[in-house]
Computed example of a mutant assay.
Amino acid sequence: MPTMTAVASPVQLDAVRKTYGSGDSAVEALAGVSVSFPAGSFTAVMGPSGSGKSTLLHCAAGLDEPTSGSVTLVGTPLKGKNETQLTELRRQHVSFIFQSFNLMPALNVEQNVTLPTLLAGREPDRAWVAQVIERVGLAKRVKHRPGELSGGQQQRVAIARALASRPAVVFADEPTGALDTTTALEVLTLMRELVSEGQTIVMVTHDPVAASYADTVLFLVDGSIVTQMATPTVEAVAGTLADLGARAKQARGQR
């Protein structure tokens, strides 16, 4: 496995607040979150709908600017960086896996996987690309286009694309949400293996099974981390989610 960028915690948030709108219509999506994601760790972010999960991911990745507080990505403070500088930083160090695969329909598997590296102005390491494509089980499909692949295979292409550029950190937003159970477990197993080899993954999910593959689960409610769980199990995660959902519903009823 190639060595990742050597930073003890590739992602750090310090007292991050994010407010949308102003005055009476203001919505606080993040309420002063401080958290760091160590190198070689797999963290799941969970919580009731509207708890701030995607906002946390977007602020951590520099896709959204916090209202206050600071974010450090692979040792670089994001505050004051313009969009060009942020794009360059992400191209060099960050990859994304989304629920929608975002593949280029006219390109085959290999071309889709190497595209971000080429866009960053670098020549892909063809041996590493071939290894990644083999790891996601698509070695015999490299010349196929997305339209010739199943949904699960398309998601595996998206995962290979995320890893081919050797990022310091992968941000995943519901990466198994559109997959059948068998394929989802294969994808999660692959992500788990990559973390054991030094990859850092931050994953937003609503699925207790997906979360059980992580080292740590962070639970968000109303923009705050209310608890976290190490070595999560499906049952423990599901129980905590049910409890938080009931409490959030009760709190809304009392407002």
Rank of each mutant, 00 (worst) to 15 (best):
E83V: 07
T84K: 15
Q85F: 10
Q85D: 15
L86I: 09
L86P: 10
L86G: 08
L89I: 05
L89N: 09
L89A: 09
R90D: 08
R90C: 05
R90A: 07
R91L: 06
R91D: 07
Q92M: 11
Q92A: 15
Q92P: 04
Q92T: 13
Q92H: 13
H93A: 08
H93Y: 11
S95L: 06
S95W: 05
S95V: 14
F96I: 04
F96M: 09
F96Q: 08
F98P: 12
F98K: 07
Q99S: 10
Q99N: 08
Q99I: 12
S100F: 15
S100A: 14
F101A: 06
F101W: 07
N102G: 05
N102I: 08
L103D: 05
M104C: 14
P105Y: 11
P105C: 08
A106K: 13
L107W: 03
N108Q: 11
N108G: 13
V109A: 09
Q111I: 02
Q111M: 08
N112C: 02
N112V: 08
N112K: 01
V113Q: 02
T114G: 03
T114L: 04
L115M: 13
T117M: 09
T117W: 02
T117P: 03
L118H: 02
L119V: 03
A120Q: 03
A120L: 04
A120M: 04
A120F: 04
G121H: 05
G121M: 07
R122D: 00
R122M: 00
E123W: 01
E123F: 03
E123P: 05
E123T: 15
P124R: 02
P124M: 00
P124G: 01
D125K: 01
D125E: 06
D125N: 10
R126K: 14
R126V: 08
A127N: 07
A127D: 14
A127I: 08
A127K: 13
W128V: 00
W128M: 08
V129G: 03
A130P: 05
A130C: 01
Q131M: 06
Q131R: 10
V132N: 00
V132G: 00
I133W: 00
I133G: 06
E134A: 14
E134N: 11
L138W: 05
L138G: 09
A139I: 12
K140Q: 15
R141C: 10
R141G: 06
R141W: 13
V142L: 13
V142W: 07
K143T: 15
H144S: 15
H144P: 12
R145Q: 15
R145E: 14
R145L: 13
R145A: 14
P146Q: 14
P146R: 14
G147A: 15
G147V: 15
L149M: 10
S150W: 13
S150C: 12
S150I: 07
G151S: 09
G151V: 13
G152F: 12
Q153M: 13
Q154W: 09
Q154C: 14
Q155R: 06
R156S: 07
R156M: 11
R156W: 07
V157S: 00
V157Q: 00
A158P: 02
I159S: 01
I159P: 00
A160E: 01
A160G: 05
A160D: 04
R161N: 02
R161S: 03
R161M: 02
R161C: 05
R161G: 02
A162W: 01
A162D: 04
A162I: 11
L163T: 02
A164T: 07
A164Y: 02
A164M: 03
S165Q: 07
S165M: 11
S165L: 10
P167F: 12
A168V: 12
A168L: 10
A168C: 12
